[in-house]
Nucleic acid binder design. Structure first.
Length: 492
RNA sequence: GUCCCCAUCGUCUAGCCCGGUUAGGACGCCUCCCUUUCACGGAGAGAACCGGGGUUCGAAUCCCCGUGGGGACGCCA
């Protein structure tokens, strides 16, 4: 089915209602939550789920809750917890309720927001089920009891006999997928024999207690939803709206299946370290499984917030494309004001081993960064792209050298440049250009005959800012020294 | 194996609900232009309706069956 729930008759009323809702209306009853568990690195799939929840909350003027699902004592870690706060903050996904971003204390009227601190609540809900006969103890664990006739059957997959319950299928009216039916026909554990509640149980209890109105989560949870709906029924509570968003899959060159933590580009931390612009990442992520319904791609966060809605979310999984993300990052970089870009560059070089040396001369640094701004796709490319400005110890690209030296008499051109250098006007790019053009004209040559070889000698590459800008910034003496050294063949 | 979800260029997608398009855009790739290299920018090329049946004058669009992809089947979350 290629058309989506935007057109689904069941949700069309909800769509119209949401559409006419004033943005950031204070009276919105929408409450959504992002509920990660601090058991691993914060990856792109989690970020996208968080983003869609955040977007929906901001679009409707509802509340965005961060709840920490730290019931797995074995695998939790404080470091991963901190990473959740940091990554979300970096992405600009601020939450209205939940632990404070610095990890000290929390905000919101429905806390505590860490499941590890909600034991008493879970216990009370367990007692409710026990008292109403919807839960029972077996093998030291507590099980949720389905209603219906029981029978036993051999399960091929699990290689054992299991007890099944005859009951009606659970019907889920998903905001994105429409009507989904699924059979839930086995009792399931809600408290482990070690006394700890399991995910399905705490998830539902918390969503009830925190008055969550829309559960927006990955499609991998769609098959859990039938369990959750049965639990809501068991508590006598109407389930919230569900919206299962498509998954992010590996790109074809990465292989098959869901994007996993081991895949290149899967971790938010990675983009943070590479100094990607968070707004570019957010823009890209928003386009994975959603679009504004027209050809717009580059959008400000505010615009995405305004346009985003659940029925417009796609139903099919999307493959991750690092190239498109890089392109988007470049377009954002291109439009940064000079001061902002220089600040970005400073933040990046502050993390580099030679950063202090590179930034030693403020004006020199600034000029070079601005020369590089229109040329790079991400800030972390600055190190390699501008390296030869900050060291005499740069390498000559062998392949480029071979190519450049093969044509004409490049050594003669270099000698001519050296000869012209002492009287060359270095006051502006235009003056340098004029001088080189004059030299070329005298020899019956063109600017290009000097450009490539000079660039090779002075920078070691065939890519970079204009050669005139390089001359001016480097200064007469360094240009001369570099060309002389190149002619002497002293470099590797 | 069982159940659930999904299916338009290599990739992200528009079009599908409400049948009639030269099937549109973007990334990537290629060519050309601009140009002082490399980028940017501009122009263009190439590139898709998974297959088969139906329904219909007419199907990417509606229905069915395959196939393919993804997910779930834990005292993980």
């Amino acid at each position: 089915m290629r058309w989506n729930a935007r057109n689904h008759p069941f949700v069309s009323v909800a769509f119209v209602t949401a559409f006419h809702l004033p943005h950031h209306a204070s009276m919105s009853s929408v409450r959504v939550r992002f509920a990660p568990s601090p058991t691993g690195f914060f990856h792109i799939g989690s970020a996208r789920t968080a983003l869609f929840n955040w977007l929906y909350a901001r679009h409707t003027g509802g509340a965005f809750i961060l709840r920490i699902e730290d019931t797995d004592k074995e695998r939790n870690s404080e470091a991963f917890l901190k990473l959740i706060y940091e990554s979300m903050t970096w992405l600009g996904l601020d939450w209205d309720e939940g632990p404070n971003p610095d990890g000290n204390g929390e905000r919101g009227a429905f806390g505590p927001y860490r499941q590890s601190q909600r034991g008493a609540i879970y216990e009370a809900y367990k007692q409710k089920l026990l008292a109403s006969g919807r839960a029972y103890e077996k093998d030291g664990a507590v099980w949720f009891k389905l209603l219906g006739e029981r029978y036993r059957v051999f399960d091929d997959h699990r290689k054992k006999e299991v007890e099944k319950v005859k009951c009606d299928p659970v019907v889920i009216d998903d905001q994105i997928r429409g009507r989904v039916e699924r059979m839930e026909d086995e009792d399931f554990v809600i408290f482990r024999s070690d006394g700890n509640p399991v995910f399905h149980f705490v998830n539902v209890v918390d969503d009830i207690e925190m008055k969550v109105s829309h559960i927006i989560r990955g499609e991998d949870h769609l098959s859990n939803t039938s369990k959750h709906v049965r639990l809501y029924e068991g508590f006598g509570v109407t389930p919230p709206a569900f919206a299962h968003i498509p998954l992010i899959l590996k790109s074809p060159e990465m292989g098959q299946g869901k994007m996993s933590k081991r895949d290149k580009g899967a971790l938010i931390e990675e983009y943070q370290q590479r100094h990607f612009l968070p707004e570019a990442l957010v823009n890209y992520l928003s386009l994975l499984g959603w679009n504004p319904g027209d050809d717009r791609e580059k959008m400000s966060i505010a615009e995405i917030v305004r346009l985003f809605d659940l029925p417009a979310v796609n139903q099919s999984n999307a493959k991750f494309d690092g190239k498109k993300l890089a392109h988007l990052n470049m377009t954002y970089l291109l439009e940064q004001p000079a001061e902002t870009f220089v600040a970005l560059a400073k933040a990046f070089f502050a993390t580099q081993p030679n950063g202090a040396a590179v930034m030693a001369n403020e004006n020199y640094f600034r000029e070079i960064m601005l020369l590089a701004q229109p040329k790079i796709k991400s800030v972390d490319e600055l190190a390699a792209y501008t390296a030869y400005f900050f060291t005499e110890d740069f390498v000559i690209d062998a392949k480029v050298k071979e190519k450049v030296m093969a044509k004409g008499d490049p050594k003669a051109r270099l000698a001519e440049i050296i000869a012209a250098l002492p009287t060359m006007d270095f006051s502006s790019d235009a003056a340098i250009e004029e001088a080189i053009k004059k030299l070329a004209a005298e020899k019956g040559l063109g600017f290009g005959d000097y450009q490539a070889v000079t660039r090779l000698a002075v920078t070691g590459t065939n890519a970079g800012p204009s050669i005139t800008a390089i001359f001016r910034v480097l200064g007469r003496e360094r240009v001369k020294a570099r060309i002389e050294r190149f002619l002497a063949g002293a470099q590797p």
